[in-house]
Lab assay of single mutants.
Amino acid sequence: NQASVVANQLIPINTALTLAMMRSEVVTPVGIPAEDIPRLVSMQVNRAVPLGTTLMPDMVKGYA
């Protein structure tokens, strides 16, 4: 099963992502692949992401 990127904390809108904000977890539906975590660092979210939410490509500016 593919691990996805999950929010490790509440991430406010327009926040630049850091490693501490993300974790890898096997979830359904599948979100951004966990191997993309290094690429996500310093990218901004375009909405508030609650703790435990799977990051989807449309939630991260410049990812999709």
Rank of each mutant, 00 (worst) to 15 (best):
I37G: 06
P29S: 08
P50M: 11
D36A: 05
V27R: 06
M43W: 07
A48E: 15
P33E: 05
M56F: 11
M43S: 13
P12H: 11
Q44H: 12
M59E: 03
T54N: 02
P12T: 10
Y63Q: 07
P57H: 08
S4Y: 07
N14Q: 11
E25G: 05
M43C: 04
T54E: 02
L10K: 05
A16N: 12
L10C: 14
N8Y: 07
A64M: 09
A3R: 04
R39T: 05
A34D: 14
L55K: 00
G52H: 11
M21A: 08
L55P: 01
Y63I: 06
L55T: 00
V49W: 02
G62D: 11
D58A: 05
V5C: 04
V5M: 02
M21Q: 07
L17I: 11
Q44P: 09
L55M: 08
P50W: 09
A16L: 13
V26E: 15
G62L: 08
T18G: 06
L40F: 02
V6T: 14
P38H: 12
M43Y: 14
S4I: 02
M22Y: 01
K61D: 06
I37R: 14
A48D: 12
V41R: 06
S42K: 08
N14A: 06
D36V: 05
A16V: 15
N46A: 10
A20M: 08
I37K: 04
P29L: 06
A7V: 06
P29E: 14
E25I: 03
S24H: 15
E35D: 09
I32R: 00
M21N: 09
G52S: 11
T18N: 10
K61A: 13
Q44T: 13
L51D: 13
Q44N: 14
N14I: 03
T28Y: 08
A16D: 15
M22G: 00
G62H: 11
I32P: 00
T18A: 14
P12D: 11
A64R: 14
G31H: 01
A34I: 10
M43H: 11
S42D: 11
I37C: 03
T28E: 15
Y63R: 04
L19G: 12
L10Y: 07
N1C: 13
N46G: 10
R39K: 15
V49Q: 02
Q2D: 15
T15E: 11
P50E: 10
T15G: 05
G62Y: 12
I11W: 00
L51Q: 10
T54I: 13
T28W: 03
A64N: 14
V60A: 02
N46P: 02
P12L: 05
N1L: 14
V41I: 11
M21H: 04
P29Y: 06
K61W: 08
T53Q: 10
P50H: 14
I37P: 01
T28N: 09
M21P: 01
P57K: 09
M22N: 00
L40E: 01
Y63V: 07
L51S: 13
P57E: 08
T18F: 04
